[in-house]
Design a protein around this nucleic acid. Structure first.
Lengths: 153, 153
DNA sequence: CGCAATTCGATTGCGCACAACTATATTGAG
DNA sequence: CTCAATATAGTTGTGCGCAATCGAATTGCG
């Protein structure tokens, strides 16, 4: 055993959080695969569907808390799949505007059943889900809150 | 806005979970970097410190819920850093035994202060931490429980 | 206006995750 | 004992995450 009880894997929050996230991502895998999507691609679409378009790469990054190094290739794959378009903003050539295509909008209806499937797989009752959601929100606010949380929302 | 309210990013558990995990990993980054470790490498050491050695690659995978495709390169980097050794089990040549070196054991004392630093950064009180831990545990049990949870624990 | 500072996105490099597959070793049925 | 089935780690290929850097566009100070 470890010389320091606080170093025990299961005694901390970090490992259960890490393992649970990967388990959830794995649970989404087969459902999203049906539509040729990965989990980060799906989240990117959720962000686009839930905001006014077009969004810039920076807007998406602020929403998803991902930088351009991660997002650029993800968006390019969504573009390749015909779900979004990318175009330089003519008013500010530094920006790239991301817009959902008709096919991308249609996908909303096809994936709309997925969240309920996952909630079922999670096996938490409504009260537990709400608590977990609240605690994760507090954690996020505390850890990411000091960052330049975009004022575009 | 989305045509389906259940597709809203923040209304679900999946995105807060995903974002919180990345925020926590980022929070560990600078603290672990001081010792030349990444977060998965740190978790791998925690698993080794917390169990009887030597552990096989499969044992580690069962503990961390990672497969050999992920663990093999992680362990090789820990070996490169002089923190663990790898050797074939002479009794069963399929297995690889991972053992912590003296330097690896010494690292325990140096990182022992890190969990408390993170707990502080999380900004959750004791009760909230316990609740979050419990809920994540339930989620993990439910999602990973059906897998061949190794009997070596 | 002129030019330094800033913004924005893309690029590069590294290290995970994981699926799919391979090679080798062990086990077990007949 | 033989050989098919299984167990185990490693390899390969794809797709994130993120730090660091770059190049181009924009802004703002003097």
């Amino acid at each position: 055993m470890s010389r320091h009880p606080q170093l025990d894997l299961d005694a901390q929050l970090c490992f259960p959080l890490y393992a649970a996230t990967r388990a959830v991502t794995r649970a989404y895998g087969p459902l999203l695969r049906e539509f040729g999507l990965t989990y980060p691609q799906y989240l990117t679409l959720l962000a686009l569907w839930g905001d006014d378009e077009p969004m810039t790469v920076g807007d998406l990054g602020g929403r998803l808390r991902l930088d351009s190094g991660t997002l650029t290739p993800v968006i390019k794959r969504l573009e390749q799949a015909g779900l979004v378009t990318r175009q330089r903003d003519t008013l500010d050539e530094r920006r790239v505007l991301v817009t959902v295509t008709a096919a991308g909008r249609d996908l909303q209806d096809q994936v709309a059943h997925i969240p309920a499937r996952l909630v079922e797989a999670f096996g938490l009752d409504e009260d537990e889900s709400r608590q977990l959601h609240r605690l994760l929100g507090r954690l996020l606010d505390r850890l990411d809150g000091e960052l330049p949380e975009s004022t575009t929302r």
